[in-house]
Structure formats: structure tokens, C-alpha cells
Amino acid sequence: MPVITAFCSSGTGKTTLLTHLAYYAATNNISTALIELDNRNSLKRCCGLPNSEFTTSNIFDSAFKGNYDFLPLWESHLKGKAEVCQTNRESLLETEKLLATKPLGILKLKKVLKKYKLPHQLILLDAPGQEGVMSESALLASDYVILSIEATPKAMMDAVRFVQILFNYEEEYDVAIPEILGIVVGRYNHESSKARDIMEQLPDIAEEIGTILFSPIRHSNEFLNCYDLGIPLHLYRSGHNAIHDFDIDGNVFKDMSDKKLRSLDRKFYGSLPAIAKTIVQIVKHG
């Protein structure tokens, strides 16, 4: 049961990515847990969650003995195959403060998840975008990290910083770091020349940091709309093309005319692996 998290700056679409991964995995018969570590509690909105008694802070509590009590996610569709643990802003802020005072506080989550194993086949950690105890906890507790970026200069520089932090951990503290599963560009707008410039450089960057590039998730207002309604795009607009950014390799680029592709190499970009499909394969076949 791999633990996977997504990383990079706020607003790049990490939460959107992870909730859609949870949906996709669950419909592929993979039991999935989605744990929120961001005190902004965006899952409440985009997953349409009710208030809950049990929140992420409980997992960090010294009284915690493995009595997880998650909420079902989109139950009428997923029939309990996916579950979610949301945060509560106040209590998580408390937890963060407490962890920050402990020397190895950021290893607590890793330890708890190891000691009290969740029964799920896939565990997704939704971490906040800025540096801090929660994002570091997520990182150290994960087997894989998805480098979830946006094709903007700011997000790129954040990504550099992130890779630096990751490598630093390994070097300075000699702790095991997650494997970078790949780079996913969220909110990708092919019309923007800046975004295309960055897309063009990403294969080399991926190689440089020893990972691969996934097919991007396009920018679409429908993602904004369904986010506000608390449902995944699959349930909001079942026929929408952007859904296939999760399940069809190279989807965004696949049927683009050469003119539109500009200098991007069709063979390469048209076959970039789809992130969700890849994760399902990892869970099913290791």
C-alpha cells in the first residue's frame, strides 16, 4: 500500500489532483484513503464533506491507538471504496505548534502510519504548499511524491527549491526520502507561450532530477466549478475531455494539429503517461 503525496507551491492544483486520483483509484476497485494535512481544510469544500468528530489532529494525538474513523468519500458513487480524513483548522494549528517543538516531530506521521497500518491499498496525503511541519511530515511518511507544478515561473522556482529541500534531507540527515514519481503540470494552458516554453524544458528537467514527465492536467473552468460543488469532474461533467487527462496517455497533446503543437515533439508528448493510470498500475502490479 504505497503512500503518495503531491508537492509544490499552493494553488498548483495538488488537492484537485489528489481528489481526482482518489476517485479514479476507487472506481478501479482500489480502496483508497485520502488524508488532509493542510489546515486550510480545502477538502471540506471540494469533497463536499460534513463536519466530523475525527480529524487529522487525532492521528497525531498521543492517545491515538489506531482507531481511525474516516468519512466515506462520495459514498453514493464510490460505495465506501474511498475514505477521507479532513482537518480542523484550529486543532491542526495546535498540532503543528506541538510538533515543531519536538526534535523529531516531523517523523511522527511516518511512525504512526507504520505502527497503525491502514487497511487501504492506496494512501494519499494532501499536504499544504508551503514549507512547514505538515508538508515535511507528509514527505517523510511517503513512498512516492508527485512533483505537482504549474507551468509558471513562480511555480518552477518553487519546484527547484522543493527538489533542493528533498535532496538536502537525504544528505544532511540521512533519512529516507520518497522517490519522485514524476512531474505533473496542473492547470496547463497550451495557448500560453510561457507555459509552452516550460513544457518544452520539462523532459530535460525530469531527466536531470531522475524522474519522468506525466501528461499534464489542462486548465479548465469546469475544475473550478466542480471544486465549488464538492464533486469530481467525473460526476459533474461525465463526458468532459479533461477527465481523460487522468486516464489516457498523452491526452492533452494526442490529437493536436502540428501547428498547434508548435515545436513540441508529437511522438514524445503524445505518449506521456497518464498519472492516474500509472498509480493504479503501481498499486495493482507493484
Binding site: F167, E170, I205
Partner: peptide
Amino acid sequence: GRKKVDYLESFSNVTSLK
């Protein structure tokens, strides 16, 4: 003549250390 930013270089600086 649109000027492109070279991000690869920034990443290489980080990985060369490793």
C-alpha cells in the same frame, strides 16, 4: 526574440550537489 528562461540550469545546480 522572445527571451526564454533556462530552468534546467537551476535544477542542475541543485542536482550537481547530489
